[in-house]
């Protein structure tokens, strides 16, 4: 049940995408997300889709695994699509009772759906192929310029890496607690909304107790090793760009160019 949430999980295997520098992957993901908001026609989506398929194939993560994580956001996806479908003014296609579906609405709903699916798949590829540590290292490095503006970049990325590190641990813990309570006849899956919310108490109390205990232990362990923030801190494995990273940057630029150019040509 809980294991179905693959969002933000790391998938261990060896592939070109896995071995890329985390900075490249972050830049690529952002470029991809921005490109999704730039495109306004289906040709653009086809290019973005092909690019995505290309990345998934390279990453060697089974597509099944990526799309299993999609189940959890399926609900949000449907709601977004419905809103767009019914609430966009334009030329009516179908009308019934108080609702009407317009041509613009239909188009927007489909585009919105594709955009959301692409967005989540795109960011999943990044998190699935990059360990949390690498990801935050990359982010810290990319945000370095902000240090001049007195933004506590190291602290932010440290917080992020701790949060990311704890997600799988807490998920596993939740799984265990759920099982322990289910062994005592707890039921998390049926009943009204109210009873279901109440049934979460036996799950949440032990989970919070354990989270606080872990946080306390971690703070103590960090203190015991004299952690004092980012000042003068060096890295055991500093990030260094390799040849493949340069190629990857080139691919990103080509992709963006293709989106812009082809989108223009077919649009006019």
């Amino acid at each position: 049940m809980l294991r179905d949430i693959t969002l933000g999980q790391y998938y261990r295997t060896e592939s070109v995408i896995h071995s890329l520098d985390p900075r490249v992957k972050i830049v690529a993901t952002f470029s991809f997300i921005i490109s999704l908001f730039l495109v306004k026609n289906f040709i653009g989506y086809i290019i973005a889709g092909l690019f995505l398929v290309f990345c998934i194939r390279l990453s060697k993560v089974p597509p099944k695994f990526i799309f299993r994580g999609m189940k959890t956001i399926f609900f949000i996806l449907i709601i977004t699509m419905l809103f767009n479908l019914f609430l966009t003014p334009g030329i009516p296609l179908v009308t019934f009772w108080k609702f009407q579906i317009t041509k613009e609405g239909l188009k927007l709903a489909i585009m919105m759906g594709i955009r959301l699916v692409f967005l989540i798949t795109g960011s999943s590829i990044m998190t699935l192929t990059t360990t949390p540590n690498n990801l935050t290292d990359g982010l810290e490095d990319l945000l370095k310029p902000l240090k001049k503006l007195r933004v506590p970049v190291h602290e932010i990325s440290m917080m992020m890496s701790i949060a990311l590190r704890f997600i799988p641990i807490l998920m596993e813990e939740t799984d265990k607690i759920m099982k322990a309570q289910m062994a005592r006849g707890a039921d998390f899956e049926s009943g009204s909304l109210m009873t279901r919310a109440k049934s979460l108490i036996p799950l949440l109390v032990p989970l919070f107790v354990s989270a606080f205990r872990r946080a306390n232990d971690l703070a103590m362990a960090m203190e015991a090793r004299c952690y004092r923030g980012g000042e003068g801190r060096t890295k055991m494995k500093p990030l260094v760009y390799k040849r493949r990273d340069a190629i990857a940057y080139l691919v990103i630029v080509l992709y963006l160019a293709a989106i812009v150019v082809l989108g223009r040509i077919f649009f006019t």
Binding site: K176, I177, A180, A183, P202, V205, P206, V209
Partner: peptide, 13 residues
């Protein structure tokens, strides 16, 4: 009946 390894996983009241 199944009693799990860690009592911390089930005590909540």
């Amino acid at each position: 009946g199944l009693v799990f390894q860690y009592p911390e996983h089930q005590l909540f009241e």
